[in-house]
Amino acid sequence: MTKVAFNISMSLDGFITAGNQTREEPLGKNGEFLHEWFFSSGAEGDAYVQRLTSNIGAVICGRKCYDDSIPYWDENGPTGALRLPLFVVTHRPLLASHSTGIYHAVRTIPDAVKQATSAARDKDVSLMGGADIFRQALAGGLVDEIELHIVPVLFGAGTRLFDTLPEQIKLEPTSMLETPLARHIAYRVVK
């Protein structure tokens, strides 16, 4: 059964971006440190990344994430050679060069989840960000699992993930893995 899993890297003090965000540094000053675990965690980390990505069939992100990532994504989208469909929640058109069938603009989070679930073909849907999209999806009961990649850094400023939640959300821990550059903790959302 397809599940919607929110995956995100976060500083130990709860930020998913560092402070001082600019167009050149959309994750803030030294914010890319949040993703180093994904690219250089050694054999155990590489095996974890493979497990994490092997059952994803589609991806959802918000407009800010899309706009910030354009310099880093090509016509294949965020999953590169896998060419998984990306559903961008937005009210504005996407870049003309992103009309390759990978990128899809959708107006609401429920529509994005519905279309991504269909496109995933029994695989999981990865909700990749940002914080606002996550909070809205969580409030709408659309998130099945939360996987946090807690990176050993204190930013002190930036974008907080859990800044405003509409209500108390109960979680059940399902797994934890320690790698050299992050602690990976997964929770099932109790509905």
Rank of each mutant, 00 (worst) to 15 (best):
Y103W: 11
V190T: 05
P93N: 15
Y48R: 00
Q136V: 13
W37I: 07
A137L: 03
S175C: 03
A58P: 00
L94W: 11
G28C: 07
F162Q: 10
V125L: 04
D124C: 00
Q136L: 13
P166V: 11
L12W: 10
G77V: 01
A157E: 14
V151T: 08
R135G: 07
L12I: 14
K3H: 07
K3R: 14
L94Q: 07
L171Y: 06
T90F: 06
T174H: 07
I185K: 08
A139V: 08
A105E: 08
A116T: 00
A47M: 04
R183N: 08
A157F: 06
L142C: 03
Y103F: 15
G130I: 13
L171E: 11
A47I: 06
E172P: 02
P180I: 04
L95T: 01
H91F: 06
I70C: 11
P71W: 09
E167V: 05
Q21N: 12
V190S: 11
W73C: 04
G57W: 01
A157Q: 15
L165M: 14
I70S: 06
Y187E: 02
T179S: 12
E75S: 12
S118W: 02
G19I: 11
I146Q: 04
E44I: 03
V151C: 09
L154Y: 15
F162K: 10
Q168V: 08
V190D: 03
D13H: 10
L34V: 09
E172T: 06
R183E: 08
L181Q: 14
A116I: 03
H98P: 09
G19C: 05
E36L: 13
I70V: 14
F134K: 02
T179R: 05
G158W: 12
I146N: 04
G158D: 12
P152G: 07
F134D: 03
L161P: 12
A157G: 15
L138M: 11
E36T: 14
R121G: 07
A186V: 00
I109S: 09
L27M: 12
S69T: 08
S99A: 14
V4W: 01
I70G: 06
W73V: 10
H149V: 05
T117A: 07
H104F: 03
D68N: 15
T22E: 07
F134S: 05
V113G: 01
V89C: 05
G31M: 10
P110F: 09
L12G: 08
S41M: 03
G62T: 07
F38Q: 09
